[in-house]
Every structure is written in C-alpha cells, then in structure tokens.
Design a protein around this nucleic acid. Structure first.
Lengths: 167, 167
DNA sequence: TTAAAGTTTCAATATAAAATGAAAGTTTAA
DNA sequence: TTAAACTTTCATTTTATATTGAAACTTTAA
C-alpha cells in the first residue's frame, strides 16, 4: 500500500467509526486528517483533501475547536488561519470523554434522578419502575465518575499500578 | 410527576441518548420499555406503547436479541411470543461493550494495523503518518483490551479492590 | 477608507437512516 | 390440511441529518 492510499483509507475508516459513535462523518474525517498531517493545514487544504464545501469545513472545524481537540494556529507572514489536532492520545480521550459526559450523560442523569423520584407508595408496576430507574441512575453515575477518576490516574501511584495490571 | 409521565420521559430520554451514541432511537426505546416493565411484553404491547409499526417492532426486537440484551419468552397457554430485557446492568454493559468491540473496534483496528505498516523509508510526511497511526493502533488496542479486563474484574480480588478504590 | 483575503452563517438541497405496511412466510391447533 | 394467529421481510415513503453555496460579515494591509 502506498502513502496516499493508506492516508485515504485511514481517513475513511475514522470517519465511519465516528458516525457509528454519533460523531458526524466529516468532523471525524477532518480530525483524522489533522492527526496525520505533519504540518498545520488551512481551511483550503482541508476542503481540497476531503472534497467538502467551505461551509462544511468551517462548521466542523469550529465544532472540533469547541470540543477542544483541534487548535487554531497562525503562521507569521501568512494571513490565513491554520489548524492542528491534539496529538496526545491520552489527552484526546480525556477531552472527548469529558465533553460527552457534559453534553449527554449529565442531562440523562438528571432525568433519571427525576423519574426515579416519583411517589413509590402506589402500584406494583410503579414500584418496579422506581427500582429499575434508581439502579440505572446509580450505575450511570458510577460509570460517569470513572471518567474523572481515569483523568487522575496518571497523577497517583496506585493509578499507574492499576494501569500496569490492566495492561 | 405521575407514573405514566415518568415512564414516557424515561423512554424518550433513553431513546435520545441511544441515537447520540449510534444506536437507533426505536431500538433504545424498546429496550428502555422492557427494562422498566415488570412483566414480559408481546410485540403488540411494544407497538401500542411506542406507537410504532409491526415491521419496526419486529426488526428492532430481533436486533436487540442479536445483541443478547433482550430475550424471547413463552407463556404457557399463550401462543404469542413475549420479550424481556436483560436487567442486570453489569451484564448489560459487558454485552454492549463486547458487541460494539466486535462490530466496530476490531475492524477499525485491522485497518489501523494495515495502514501503519506501509513502507516507512520514504518521506518525512510518510514517517509522521506511520508514527501517528501506530500510536493510535496501540492506544485503541489497549482501550479495547480493557473491555475484556473489566469483564473479569468481578472474578478476582484485585479487581474488586480496584473497583473499591475507583468507587 | 477601502478592497482584497479570509471566515461564518443559514436557507435550500441532498443524503443517509429509519419507519411503514402489505405481502409472504411460519407455526399451531383442530 | 387448512385456516387462523402470529412473525418476518423488504420495496416504498418518511424523517432526520449533513452538506452546499452564495451572501453577509470580519479582518488586514496598503
């Protein structure tokens, strides 16, 4: 396989993976492209490489910056803006996890809490509902907390030990 | 809030969360409905509760069974088929994780491995590409392996200890 | 200032994904 | 063995999502 072919395959795959996980295809593709680019790219560059419109490029670059995983850069002497991706993968994972937690998990947790707090003194049906949603609340909360814990892992010895055991 | 209202809110929220994570809305809603139903439900029941067509119900119940998180049941004397959801949340999480790993992560890993193995003796550009995709391969592999490890956690003392520390 | 270079916005359009529903298929009890 | 009860399939339609592109906006250098 040749460089150009490999690069394209990578970008397509990353895009597909993204959309399977609820991240829009172009956004994932732009991120992939920037990840493997040695140099920062301009919006033109991105448009040309991925064959997408200016508007699409603009909107998705903005979204990636909102997620904190793509940065704007300026080159001296150049008027254009350039973009680079976060290349530290631990950092990348943490940012994605935190962002999704904030946008999706936290609001869902709120609803779970609300619906599991209805008056349980009534029917058997209601009792079962409250029981299940309460369990779910605890579970999701615990899972969500793990994200924060993982962030701290590298800062403490037991965390590093655990990582070694988990390999 | 009243039972019926709470139940509906839960189902809608779970459906929305699902589609944000690449699982189709109806599939997530059916799962939610079965999760909080004290009794197994028939396909009719599901159709009526969620106001969906027979075809839709059939296809998504089948998909949920393929994922191994919904089971078919028979009631004696009844000709209809009934459905229940996996209600053990640890079990549920493991099954979802395994299934997504199998369907999405594993194929992506294969591609990552392939593209990171192109001849690296060429340009600087190529060198950077190989470097990045190799790192990504290692990272995704590690993350994916964690799923298996988590499965085993409950079976060994260090795992339980870790869970306590992570709380 | 102003006009050229560049970026953003958003209504309109295209694309992809999900849902419908009727026909075909299957199972079961009489 | 057949007809009623029930389930599955899939071509068509609907809905949701992503993309385009041209106009509006912003910035900068002369």
């Amino acid at each position: 396989m040749e460089f150009k072919e490999a690069k394209n395959k990578f970008i397509q795959t990353w895009g597909a993976l993204g959309s399977q996980w609820g991240i829009n295809k172009t956004m994932a593709q732009i991120h992939a492209l920037l990840m493997v680019s040695a140099e920062p790219l301009s919006m033109e560059d991105v448009m040309d490489e991925l064959l997408i419109s200016r508007g699409n490029a603009s909107m998705n670059l903005r979204a990636l910056m909102d997620w904190g995983i793509v940065y704007k850069e300026y080159k001296s002497g150049e008027r254009k803006e350039f973009f680079t991706a976060e290349k530290d993968l631990d950092e990348l994972a943490v940012k994605i996890a935190k962002e999704r937690s904030k946008r999706e998990i936290k609001p869902a947790l709120k609803v779970l809490k609300d619906v599991s707090s209805i008056n349980r003194a009534t029917s058997l049906e209601t009792k079962h509902f409250v029981e299940q949603t309460s369990k779910l609340y605890d579970f999701v909360l615990k899972a969500d907390n793990m994200i924060d814990k993982v962030t701290e892992i590298k800062d403490n010895w037991i965390g590093r030990l655990v990582m070694k055991i988990m390999r």
